[in-house]
Design a protein around this nucleic acid. Structure first.
Lengths: 111, 111
DNA sequence: TAAAGTACCTACTAAAAAGTTAGAATAGTT
DNA sequence: AACTATTCTAACTTTTTAGTAGGTACTTTA
């Protein structure tokens, strides 16, 4: 047991925190999940619910979330188009994370 | 009450989630907090604990975290230098967030 | 006839994040 | 005398992320 062995267990690729962050560390990702929450929400509503996000980023993130099975998308073949987003089972499981984030912000950042 | 008023309460600058993300949404931020955890840990140890991070990013993030009062830094006036990092009270309050993140990863991402 | 609403996509540009490389300062080790 | 270890800083380049502007396609409303 040499000096270097005082190691705070190194986190490699299999570290759960790293794995989660790979999926969720985008600037808008958790916020979008938070806004969808347990709702079924249309694209336009979501856009209005997140002032400041660009359309490009919102769609890009949504596509990514759908691809990663956190969000499901229902397209109605109508004109004008109607698309609804909601969280999948997996997506719903991210809500405790976001809730803690909200709690932290509420108690320490926003007065 | 018109159509548009079905609004999932829009999150502006004062949204707790947004405020938290401003502080914590960096690629490495939460991982660093997680690795420090309740330890008092030297720079070199931390570096070894997070394989893959570059020195630049690690120092940059640490400086940011110190500036934002999530991490405190103790410098020993020795040669070779010795610097210890630990979480502040505020920093400790981020641990529940990271724990949820770890839980999510453990249960859904890493088998 | 023109404008507004709907949910996008594409190309281009600008800005931010991250990687790479080099080096400082000094003590102890080989 | 050269090398290692320590905790960084600085300059430069590359990569990634994000913003902007334009367009699609069709309907309803003014």
């Amino acid at each position: 047991m040499n000096k270097k062995s005082k190691i705070i267990s190194p986190c490699d690729e299999k570290c759960p925190v790293r794995a989660s962050l790979t999926l969720l560390s985008g600037k808008w990702t958790l916020l979008i999940l938070f806004q969808i929450n347990e709702n079924v929400i249309r694209y336009g509503e979501l856009k209005r619910a997140i002032p400041g996000i660009s359309e490009k980023m919102l769609i890009q993130e949504l596509n990514m979330l759908v691809e990663n099975k956190l969000v499901s998308k229902k397209v109605y073949p109508e004109i004008p188009p109607k698309v609804e987003y909601s969280l999948t089972e997996l997506g719903l499981k991210t809500l405790p994370v976001v809730d803690k984030l909200a709690e932290f912000g509420l108690e320490n950042l926003v007065s």
